[in-house]
Design a protein around this nucleic acid. Structure first.
Length: 225
DNA sequence: GCGACAG
DNA sequence: ATCTTGTCGC
């Protein structure tokens, strides 16, 4: 089972990111959409009890049916700091991923990848640590900006940082519905990341992977003692 | 210097 | 993230 070191403070966390960021692989297109196994991960918190529950759900990319589920529960080990989300979420997420029998060809994260202050968001971190292709699909633009995409499912615009660099894409997954924000994590191209996101969202704004993981980790948190 | 800011 | 039932609509 994979583990993750918890930094002592924010400065150490940023230093870790600055080292690991060099291990991100961007030259691979990643697995083709609509085939193989795709995993979704998410976490839920109970600050009162200091608990965090993570879920990893594996779907058949062709049918979007659930193939396997795993959960893990732990103590909250790092506060929420914008830009350092991975240190709060990954320890428990990696534990859930490690409990899987199936080997997914792609992991979809609830958050960002390259769209990050130091170019090393949650999806990059998870990808580098596990070696698995990973992408980030976020519900908000964070500190980035994007023009409004066209109104139809599949319409997209560039998500840019303040200096104009394209760090991801605002992607409409349903007609007339607010877009999601896709960015590359590890070993997947941006084009392919968007294609995967669309393939995983045939009916709702949020990918089925994330929807399943979200409900599962909430359930696990509720059942935790 | 202050505020904003993925989940 | 989380606080939170019923209700409006397809």
């Amino acid at each position: 089972m994979t583990t993750a070191k918890t930094p002592a403070d924010e400065a150490e966390a940023r230093a870790i990111q600055d080292v690991l960021r060099h291990r991100v692989v961007l030259a691979e297109p990643g697995p083709p959409p609509g085939r193989g196994l795709v995993a979704g991960v998410d976490v839920a918190y109970d600050d009162a009890r200091d608990l965090v529950a993570a879920a990893a759900v594996v779907l058949d990319a062709a049918t979007l049916e659930v193939v396997e589920e795993a959960t893990a529960v732990g103590r909250v080990s790092f506060p929420y700091v914008p830009g350092l989300l991975a240190f709060r979420e990954l320890p428990t997420v990696l534990e859930a991923l490690g409990a899987l029998t199936a080997a997914p060809g792609l992991v979809v994260c609830d958050g960002y990848g390259l769209a990050h202050p130091r170019g090393f968001g949650l999806a990059c971190h998870l990808g580098v640590v596990t070696g698995l292709p990973a992408i980030g699909v976020a519900k908000n633009p964070f500190t980035f900006t994007a023009d409004e995409p066209g109104p139809r499912r599949g319409d997209a615009t560039a998500l840019r940082s303040a200096d104009g660099t394209e760090v991801g894409r605002a992607l409409r997954t349903q007609d007339g519905i607010k877009p999601v924000y896709v960015s590359v994590g590890h070993r997947v191209s941006l084009e392919n990341a968007c294609a995967h996101t669309l393939a995983l969202s045939p009916r709702f704004r949020i990918p089925e992977t994330t929807r399943h993981a979200d409900s599962l980790c909430r359930r696990a948190l509720g059942e935790a003692s």
